[in-house]
Amino acid sequence: MIANPAVGTLTKEQVADLFLGKSQAFTPIDQNEGSAAYADFYKKAGGRDVAQVKATWSRIVFSGKRQAPRQVADSAAVKKAVAADPKAVGYVDKSVVDSSVKVLFSLD
């Protein structure tokens, strides 16, 4: 789990709330829905499988409350988007982390 260096600390629960539409405190950046990282992240952070995540966001979007997190192609694209936005958070493979982002915690 990474954030822009300007972001303070976040707990696993706060991050799950961001990615599951319960909080708008920061801008979540998702990986592509079909990726293994997407499924793994939601299972570990939110305890939900891909179908449950899709159902949650369908309900939120249909209600007009907000849009689902923006999806990008891969870990490198998440890192780039997070580094460019002071309110962004995302999840990436450890191998792409550098000084342009801050590691909040690991879901290993």
Score class of each variant (00 low, 15 high):
residue 24 Q to G: 14
residue 80 K to V: 11
residue 100 S to Q: 12
residue 69 P to C: 10
residue 71 Q to D: 05
residue 4 N to V: 04
residue 69 P to E: 05
residue 42 Y to A: 02
residue 13 E to M: 00
residue 47 G to P: 03
residue 17 D to N: 06
residue 108 D to H: 09
residue 98 D to H: 01
residue 54 K to R: 15
residue 4 N to G: 02
residue 43 K to D: 11
residue 100 S to E: 10
residue 37 A to D: 13
residue 55 A to K: 10
residue 49 D to N: 15
residue 59 R to F: 09
residue 15 V to E: 12
residue 95 S to C: 00
residue 33 E to I: 15
residue 106 S to F: 11
residue 36 A to Y: 09
residue 85 D to M: 02
residue 45 A to K: 07
residue 90 G to S: 09
residue 86 P to R: 03
residue 10 L to H: 07
residue 51 A to H: 07
residue 42 Y to G: 02
residue 57 W to E: 10
residue 98 D to L: 00
residue 99 S to Q: 08
residue 9 T to P: 00
residue 36 A to Q: 14
residue 99 S to M: 00
residue 89 V to C: 06
residue 27 T to K: 07
residue 91 Y to Q: 04
residue 94 K to W: 02
residue 57 W to Y: 08
residue 108 D to N: 14
residue 41 F to D: 10
residue 34 G to Q: 15
residue 77 A to S: 13
residue 87 K to M: 12
residue 7 V to Y: 00
residue 89 V to Y: 03
residue 91 Y to L: 12
residue 31 Q to R: 10
residue 49 D to H: 07
residue 55 A to G: 02
residue 90 G to W: 07
residue 40 D to K: 12
residue 62 F to S: 15
residue 28 P to R: 02
residue 16 A to T: 06
residue 1 M to Y: 13
residue 21 G to K: 09
residue 14 Q to K: 08
residue 45 A to T: 07
residue 8 G to K: 08
residue 44 K to L: 14
residue 47 G to A: 08
residue 48 R to C: 00
residue 37 A to F: 02
residue 61 V to G: 04
residue 97 V to S: 08
residue 55 A to S: 09
residue 50 V to Q: 12
residue 35 S to E: 06
residue 85 D to N: 15
residue 75 S to I: 01
residue 22 K to A: 14
residue 86 P to Y: 02
residue 102 K to D: 02
residue 99 S to R: 04
residue 92 V to R: 11
residue 51 A to W: 04
residue 40 D to P: 00
residue 59 R to V: 11
residue 95 S to G: 05
residue 82 V to R: 08
residue 58 S to T: 13
residue 30 D to Q: 08
residue 69 P to G: 11
residue 68 A to C: 07
residue 45 A to I: 14
residue 13 E to A: 15
residue 66 R to W: 15
residue 33 E to F: 14
residue 44 K to M: 08
residue 50 V to S: 11
residue 59 R to P: 00
residue 96 V to E: 07
residue 61 V to A: 12
residue 85 D to F: 05
residue 58 S to L: 11
residue 5 P to Q: 06
residue 81 A to Q: 13
residue 19 F to M: 14
residue 50 V to M: 03
residue 20 L to G: 00
residue 106 S to T: 15
residue 29 I to Q: 05
residue 22 K to L: 13
residue 25 A to V: 01
residue 42 Y to V: 00
residue 86 P to Q: 02
residue 91 Y to M: 13
residue 67 Q to L: 12
residue 23 S to V: 10
residue 101 V to Q: 05
residue 70 R to H: 14
residue 23 S to Y: 09
residue 59 R to M: 10
residue 39 A to G: 15
residue 36 A to G: 14
residue 55 A to N: 06
residue 60 I to A: 10
